[in-house]
């Protein structure tokens, strides 16, 4: 599902990742841990093809960074749900409009959008808050909204970049439970975190990254 083969990427002034080899299977929950600046976000950006490797290649659901055309990247991203530490919710739209955005992009009909959004908000525990604006939601609720937006298109992969970074421990724990449930339903989750204590006892695969290199 996700395969990185000898991937290296450098920014102008510093190294992003070096010679990364990694395979994430369907239904797998994978944590990538490492200190700030170790290359976790670079890895995420390489996976959703916001960056392209200087060497090696990234393969996602049959798309190959060495061959993909720019016009195919949106289609690739429609199959990946993304969650960030900074929620990236649109402050001038209510919860419903924020969550419905990916469905509009995919050209889903209005009636279907209404049903799907209601269903997903129910799943993440935000049902009844459709008309609330992001600033009317707590940090945990905003992150759930972000998850709802990532999940609403029923992606095969969820990429979560430090999703608990801005949350208190209890809310962070609830969020981890939610991601576990999502993974249990068949979605591969690839999550970056620097909070080892939060993930160590969850029984999932953990990969360590340091100075751009993966450690066993």
């Amino acid at each position: 599902m996700i395969a990185l083969e000898n991937v290296s990427f450098s920014y102008k002034k510093w190294v992003g990742v070096t010679d990364v080899n990694l395979v994430v299977k369907r239904d797998e929950f994978t944590y990538i841990i490492g200190p700030t600046g170790s290359g976790k976000t670079t890895l995420m950006r390489l996976i959703y093809m916001d960056l392209f490797p200087d060497n090696g290649r990234v393969l996602i659901n049959g798309y190959d960074t060495s061959r993909i055309k720019n016009r195919h990247i949106p289609r690739l991203r429609q199959n990946i749900g993304m969650i960030f530490q900074e929620y990236h919710l649109l402050s001038d739209r209510n919860l419903f409009a924020n969550v419905a955005l990916p469905l509009h992009v995919m050209g889903i009909k209005r009636n279907e959008i209404k049903e799907t959004v209601a269903e997903i908000l129910n799943e993440v525990g935000l049902y009844g808050k459709e008309s609330h604006y992001p600033n009317e939601l707590s940090g945990g609720e905003q992150q759930r909204a972000c998850i709802a937006r990532a999940l609403v298109k029923r992606p095969e992969i969820i990429l979560a970049d430090e999703p608990t970074g801005n949350l208190d421990p209890i809310t962070a724990y609830d969020l981890m439970e939610l991601l576990d449930t999502i993974n249990g339903e068949g979605t591969a989750v690839f999550m970056a975190s620097h909070n080892y204590t939060l993930i160590r006892d969850r029984g999932h695969r953990i990969i360590q990254i340091q100075e751009g290199k993966l450690r066993a």
Binding site: L90, P102, M106
Partner: peptide, 16 residues
């Protein structure tokens, strides 16, 4: 910029 970024992340094409 926030909307453009969000749209790109959810898979919107440039023309969209």
């Amino acid at each position: 910029a926030d909307l453009v970024k969000a749209l790109k992340l959810v898979g919107a094409s440039n023309i969209f």
